[in-house]
Design a protein around this nucleic acid. Structure first.
Length: 338
DNA sequence: AGCGTTACCCGCACGC
DNA sequence: TGCGTGCGGGTAACGC
């Protein structure tokens, strides 16, 4: 699943591979994957444009085109951008194609077709507009800070956390709170910081917020350096990443914790598979913003009883089908490498 | 308003 | 063998 490190890898690979190339023609093979504009306008607008560069914002690949346009690509689950000779045969999962003037082609391939393309104007500040109108609203204006930028400081992060009452897992997945994290790196960051996925954001101590900040930044830096994690259907345009070998909890339900040996637990939170070490990442019960009995009675969440408690107590601790499949793939890979 | 939850989109692999 | 289901990113819609 492409998250920040994988998208960063794709953007860097593409910048090197097709930076400076010129698009002759573009065509959309599955119109549902194109958010905006309509396919005819897209085809007309993209033809003949030189690719000035490729960058990343949140989980979006931004292809800067001459004449103030940006081709936005979101890979979602299974999207890939591949650069091939124009003579190569496309498979049924190619959703869009850009013919280059140098006899190559950029293919957007997406098995599950969740990915999205958009051709928009570049605003004055370089950010993508929501439409071909450069004075339009910013497309990604509601996104949170980029965790690898200098402006994402520990103190800013700590004060952002203070203002939120939600749980860490759902908050870190929220692109408006912090950009670029997804299910894999949220679970990994929480394990590194030794924080429970259900810990209340606002209740974190200063040292815990700092630990989480450091975990996020160091994890993402490491993952970018390793070219991301090649998991399931995802692989970079220029080859596999290595980060999947270094994931501590993701898809390791039922396996021993790399720090303490306790069995990694897998639960479902907010519809997401969540992996954590019950010993290294204890849930701080009783440490809430307000502790009096009166306050507890007023809390509707507590009255109803939080749904996650059942899933946590009940278990479902074993490996899922996906995890068993992943374990098999890892075994095959390491066996083959030897 | 903020938070949690669910449905949606889709194809595949798993498992009954 | 065949069919139902879970998986998951982001968004939207919903209820509280």
């Amino acid at each position: 699943m492409p998250e920040l490190p994988e998208v960063e890898t794709v953007a860097r690979d593409l910048a090197r591979l097709v930076g400076g190339a010129t698009i002759c023609t573009g065509r959309i093979l599955r119109t549902a994957n194109l958010s905006t504009p309509d396919p005819e306008t897209f085809t007309r607008a993209i033809a003949g444009r030189r690719i000035e560069g490729v960058r990343r914002r949140a989980k979006w690949v931004l292809v800067d085109l001459e004449g103030g346009l940006i081709l936005m690509v979101h890979l979602r689950m299974t999207g890939q951008l591949v650069v091939l000779p124009a003579t190569s045969t496309p498979d049924p999962y190619v959703r869009a194609e850009l013919q280059l003037s140098d006899q190559r082609v950029i293919r957007f391939r997406d098995v599950r077709a969740f990915g999205r393309l958009a051709l928009v104007a570049r605003r004055e500040d370089g950010s993508p507009s929501r439409s071909l109108d450069p004075s339009g609203e910013a497309a990604l204006g509601d996104h949170g800070p980029e965790p690898l930028e200098a402006t994402f400081t520990a103190s800013r992060f700590a004060s952002d956390l203070k203002g939120r009452r939600g749980r860490l897992k759902s908050l870190l997945l929220d692109q408006r709170f912090i950009a670029g994290l997804g299910n894999i790196y949220v679970d990994e960051a929480l394990w590194r910081a030794r924080l429970h996925p259900l810990a209340t954001a606002a209740a974190l101590r200063a040292a815990e917020a700092e630990r989480l900040h450091h975990a996020i930044v160091s994890l993402l830096r490491e993952a970018v350096a390793a070219r991301g994690s090649s998991i399931d259907d995802y692989t970079g345009p220029d080859g596999d990443g290595e980060m999947q070998e270094r994931l501590a909890v993701y898809q390791r339900g039922g396996a021993p914790c790399m720090r303490c040996g306790t069995t990694i637990r897998r639960v479902t939170l907010g519809g997401r598979g969540t992996h954590y070490c019950p010993r290294c990442q204890p849930l701080p019960r009783g440490r809430r913003a307000a502790g009096s009995v009166g306050d507890l009675k007023k809390s509707s969440t507590l009255r109803r009883g939080p749904r996650w408690s059942e899933s946590l107590e009940e278990g479902s601790l074993g490996a899922t089908a996906t995890e068993r499949a992943a374990a098999r793939r890892r075994a095959v890979r390491s066996g083959g490498a030897r």
